[in-house]
Design a protein around this nucleic acid. Structure first.
Lengths: 341, 341
DNA sequence: CTGAAAGCGCTTACAG
DNA sequence: CTGAAAGCGCTTACAG
């Protein structure tokens, strides 16, 4: 024991060279045996493994990254952390990658392509093993940085048909159309759309809303309330109050995110507006608490945990050099019809 | 331009050596000039800086880590990501560290010291620049790993008087006592305490609750409802229903976290229990949405953004070799008296 | 299937 | 204040 201690380098680390020596092989062979790379005799693999275990060898990530030009770090770039949606994504990604020895690095873009570009620039110098990005809204330079890096990359939350682009998500437009169709089927006539932030995915939901109503000759652009402010319960309450005042004949609202809808439900309670009797309220994402509202909120459940987990899994396969098919994965969504509509 | 391209190594990187050559100095001098380390003539610093800018030099983190035995990575270990509290911490830490060139690595312990120990083990091999930990609840081995690493470390959320231990937080016990005292001052007689998860900080709040009531001879252990289940709005609703059924004379409740309290408020609405008329409800943390509830929730605002930012700032100073004083920083808390009490 | 040589790109002592 | 030498701990071609 104390002899082992004594042998250690100033850094206090057990090195590959020591493992190799103990196993009676060269460092390169030890390296290959431990990584399961190329053909190494089963006998040698066992000896090296035993030596590594005995010495408590742990590979040095920095040395590995420097020699191989590739680290075990995987940045995930998300717009915000204040939206539970992205935290769920992050958590799923993190728990999928960690057991495989990869570290998740967070990057927050604040919905700004320029900030994302800056983050890409920084993270690329770290020789990440791969990249996880939210959506497709980036600067031209950002796109080029990605392409030139040649790194495996998976896009989350949105779908694309572009060749060779990996993505895991669902159709935001279809989801927006589905919830609107539900409102129509319920018999509502004057259906409003209320949105905040106005990021690309929110606008895709708006497209679905419009398509549904236009097809039925029910579309009225005045019933679209679009605010560029960040989404929050408080804003949802304000927008609801604004909406009922401006359009007393409005009988249903589709909020582009559950936090807005939750705030609206509470505001309706305060104002004495009966939901769904006087006004139906629908949300999006099925965030925590939506099923607890009074009345429980009808919304679209989006599979963000599954998206995070699957995107990470696809990335892992890309890193291994595989070509997982299909490149574009639609994980769908689910209408959660509760009592608010 | 194309000549510059041609000169690049296979890795595509501009190296320190190239910068040094262009500036007409040795690589070591270039290294020192760029890092602002030791005395280097102003003239040389300028020349090196100019060369670095011209070539677009970006230091290689892996090479740096290997040579210096220290990376620019800082793990932050939190219990959960599903509690907004920790996301706020994470976000504040991340935005404080990023501008200084440090990467934030996330680790999730699920409130289990064994998992934290495993994470420490893993992250320590990455030669982190420092560590950010939640609370003091760890295994003995975890404690030893920390001590032996000799790495700068700051603890978040809780306070301690232990020598040489850096922490940024507030007194959970005092906060629990303060909100209970508020309920007493309002004239409530039968004040319950409802908690979930039962992690160390929750139990400290319980201590404050007890101390307040015991001092006044108002303490009744039967009014403590403690559930080891994870905290959620749904659970809050269930516990409220349970409480009013078991103790019809209870006239106020202090929930150890706002998600429980929010769920309780909504359940009260559903059950027709008047708040605060029939039952007063207080929460803890002032999470998003608490001010939007019906009625708005009385709670304790905890300075988690400030804690994250200050802990990161202290760590940065420790990394620089400074000894910031005081080691223990009490950032306090604020009673948010709203309409639910 | 295994290994000797070289190198990844930087920094740490040690001199001067 | 500046530099030549050595080394951080691993892996990539290139041989055999």
């Amino acid at each position: 024991m104390s002899q082992t201690e004594r042998k250690r380098r100033p850094s206090g680390r057990v090195t590959l060279a020591e493992v190799a020596q103990q196993a009676g092989v060269s460092p390169i062979t030890a390296s290959r045996a431990l990584r399961g790379e190329r053909a190494v005799t089963a006998d040698l693999v066992a000896r090296v493994q035993a030596a590594a275990d005995a010495l408590g060898y742990i590979p040095d990530p920095a040395a590995r990254a420097l020699a191989s030009q590739r680290s075990t770090q995987i940045p995930i770039l998300v717009p915000l952390l204040s939206n539970a949606l992205f935290v769920d994504l992050l958590e799923a990604v993190h728990s999928t990658l960690a057991p495989h020895g990869y570290q998740t690095l967070i990057g927050v873009t604040h919905y700004q392509p320029e900030q994302e570009e800056q983050l890409l620039r920084t993270y690329l110098t770290h020789r990440p093993a791969g990249l996880l990005l939210t959506g497709f809204d980036r600067t031209e330079t950002g796109r080029q940085l990605l392409a030139r890096s040649g790194l495996p990359c998976v896009h989350l939350m949105e779908l694309t048909r572009a060749e060779g682009v990996y993505c895991v998500g669902f159709s935001q437009e279809q989801a927006g159309e589905a919830i609107t169709t539900h409102l129509v089927a319920r018999g509502y006539q004057r259906i409003a759309f209320v949105a905040a932030q106005l990021d690309p995915r929110t606008l895709q939901r708006a497209l679905g809303y419009r398509r549904c109503l236009q097809q039925r000759g029910m579309y009225d652009p005045r019933l679209e309330l679009l605010s560029p402010q960040p989404s929050s319960m408080e804003l949802g309450g304000q927008l609801l109050a604004q909406l009922v005042q401006a359009h007393p004949d409005c009988d249903a609202v589709f909020f582009c995110n559950d936090d807005l809808a939750q705030g609206a439900l509470l505001m309706a309670l305060r104002l004495g507006i009966a939901v769904p009797g006087r006004l139906a309220v629908a949300g999006f994402n099925d965030l925590s608490g939506s099923d607890q509202m009074v009345p429980p909120l009808t919304t679209v459940r989006t599979p963000r945990k599954a998206i995070g987990a699957e995107a990470a899994a696809v990335l892992l396969r890309l890193i291994r050099g595989e070509s997982p098919e299909p490149a574009s994965r639609d994980l769908g969504f689910e209408l959660m019809v509760r009592q608010s509509t």
